[in-house]
Design a protein around this nucleic acid. Sequence first.
RNA 1: GGGGAGAUUCCCGAGUGGCCAAAGGGGACAGACUGUAAAUCUGUUGACAUCGUCUUCGAAGGUUCAAAUCCUUCUCUCCCCA
Length: 378
Amino acid sequence: MVRKIMQSSIKFDVSHRSGKARRGILETPHGKINSPFFMTVGTIAAVKGLTPQMLRECGCEIVLANTYHLSLRPGEELVNRFGGLSKFMGWNGPTLTDSGGYQVYSLVDINKITDDGVSFSSHIDGSKIFISPERSVHIQQNLGADMFMAFDECPAGDSSHEVVAESIERTFRWAVRSKEAWTNREKQALFGIVQGGVYEDLRKKSAEQIVSLDFPGNAIGGVSVGEEPAKIDRVVEYTAALLPDDKPRYLMGVGRPQDIIRAIGHGVDMFDCVMPTRHARHAEVFTRKGKIKIRNLKYRDDHAPIEEDCDCYVCKNLTRGYLRHLFIAKEMLGPIYAAMHNIRFYMKMLEDAREAIEEDRYEEFSSKFLADIEGSSV
RNA sequence: GGGGAGAUUCCCGAGUGGCCAAAGGGGACAGACUGUAAAUCUGUUGACAUCGUCUUCGAAGGUUCAAAUCCUUCUCUCCCCA
């Protein structure tokens, strides 16, 4: 079951399956990535608090960055002059850029959407900027990531059927325009994004539209944007099944470890989320038995590592009590250590998932993982 | 020895008769965060507790319907002159 994606700079080979979960290799111009995988978010060409060396030690194989932010500062032309995103940030490995579509949602208070594109007031200096599908592709081609995303509209999770129905049409028109603007096909792979909110009929329609454009990869967008958490799993399961089997499936922005483990079981290959790094900065660290708020008083005299059997540097060398002290004292090492642990937690989770798929015991692995992490709070 | 300023709820600090359990910071405690406007944001922070009641503004008295605020004495702190 190894097929090459035609006319694409990336190659996706699935080597093992366990139920709907698949384990494979995604080959990019900057190197191979074991799938399913999690992309650490480095919005402004930096994963907050972690050096590329640390990322490698944590097991990261790919980093994500953002079109909107980098176009504002330092500007995509400048990144291009430094040899592109991967080289600019000293990562020298695979990268993916998001189109700015998510900022249509997250910066909703400072933008104005028309069919032509989105006008933003820069969050840095308030100046007016405009991102259209063509502009987004132009920026992303300058940034030069191995994979990049079509510019989409991401409506809030509680949007009505009527609003989302209109929105997926715009996302489709923008996907068509993104594809037309995509010229650097031998070096960069463009992914389409399926929207449709929590409505199955709209997910189906959007999937048909996006799949018809035959992108090298397909993404599920508009998940975890304020909708009821219980609906996430159903939407992902339903939508993933509508995407081509021979191309990577990317669930954007999700998320919690349990959501990722479930989504892998539905055949999703790629993930990203700010959660491990942001939560790290906010003193929340992940364990197989749930998150812990390391700043809490109960860890003051706790001499144990965050997680006994974790193989990360922090768990092998430092205690919960010390980490709590760093956060209470507002020392920058606190967020750094917490990020090292959280990223390693995610990477190890994915490593274990891949191994389980290889050994065709994903269902068993998944059940145990979910029972542990959702069973009791630490 | 003489003159002056001041003592406020964990800390700093506002408040000069009722709208004061007492502004604003800080600290502490807790919560939120999902394709990062986020090392950010929110809540609580006298005690019981359902409105509400009780105790609190250095100490003790006093004036007043009512005092953190006015008067008397005392204790302590700081500044200036000898």
